[in-house]
């Protein structure tokens, strides 16, 4: 009996959210955490001893947190920082955020990405290209939604990206540079947990046009192929020079 009630409840909740699914829109807040010692453990030029040393010293204290937000409508999505500056928990110190914005126009099938990488700001404009996703057999709860696992190989950054998407929120939008799944992406995992982007709050409501207004973005204009080439080259050079490539180019660039 109890089982039936719960099932009905689940059904009801899902149906309710699906009723609105036709033109679902809103804001999702994400927290991006990067674990530097996990990243160090991936560097091919370091010995096991050096990796263990880094993990021992910083393993419990290597989390770097940033808050970002995704504003989406059926027609477009904009993903950028929640606030224009980064600051320590006590607020005594602040820093400038890297230039970073990802906009997708689903109607016109155009992407605009504004990235600071390798000490330079780029403005990437190209047509929308859906990542090659694989769907896997795992379920997980993220921010109250049961999500399914999908995976892709990032050819430029040479990293595995895992996405958890909620098919009860049927929009193909997502945080960072990723999208194109049957539901909204609520969690991303780069390179086996080096960087994890998780939804902290989902607010489904009508998006005001001003929430989608883009800031003034200046930078060198390139397309996606050029971006891939810059990243590949930088990673290759850095690894060869035995230098951590991620000081210049981040997993999410």
């Amino acid at each position: 009996m109890k089982k039936k009630v719960i099932q009905t409840l689940i059904l009801l909740v899902t149906t309710l959210s699906l009723v609105q699914a036709q033109d679902i829109e809103g804001v999702v807040n994400y927290e991006r955490k990067t674990y530097w010692t996990k990243l160090i453990a991936k560097l091919p030029f370091l010995s096991q001893e050096e990796k263990d040393r880094a993990k021992m010293m910083w393993g419990n204290d290597d989390e770097e947190k940033t808050k970002l937000k995704l504003v989406f409508t059926p027609a477009q999505s904009v993903y950028t920082y929640e606030s224009e500056q980064g600051e320590t928990d006590d607020g005594r110190w602040s820093w400038r955020q890297d230039d970073y914005l990802v906009q997708r126009d689903f109607d016109k099938e155009i992407i605009t990405e504004w990235h600071e990488m390798g000490g330079k700001t780029y403005l990437i404009q190209d047509s929308l290209k859906i990542p090659k996703w694989k769907i896997l057999n795992q379920l997980k709860d993220v921010a109250g939604h049961v999500c399914m696992k999908a995976e892709m190989e990032d050819p430029a950054n040479q990293q595995k990206i895992v996405a958890w998407f909620a098919d009860d929120l049927p929009v193909s939008a997502g945080p960072e540079r990723l999208f194109g799944l049957p539901g909204i992406i609520l969690e991303l995992d780069y390179n086996d947990g080096v960087t994890v982007v998780t939804a902290t709050k989902i607010d489904l409501k009508k998006v005001e046009p001003k929430q989608l207004v883009l800031p003034k973005m200046k930078g060198k204009k390139i397309n996606l192929a050029e971006r891939d080439r810059i990243i590949k080259e930088h990673i290759k050079d850095s690894i060869k020079a035995q230098r951590n490539p991620y000081w210049g180019i981040k997993p999410w660039n």
């Binding site: 224009e84 500056q85 600051e87 607020g91 005594r92 110190w93 602040s94 820093w95 400038r96």
Partner: peptide, 8 residues
């Protein structure tokens, strides 16, 4: 102390 967007 004043801090804003990387100016401290």
């Amino acid at each position: 102390r004043y801090n804003y967007k990387g100016l401290n």
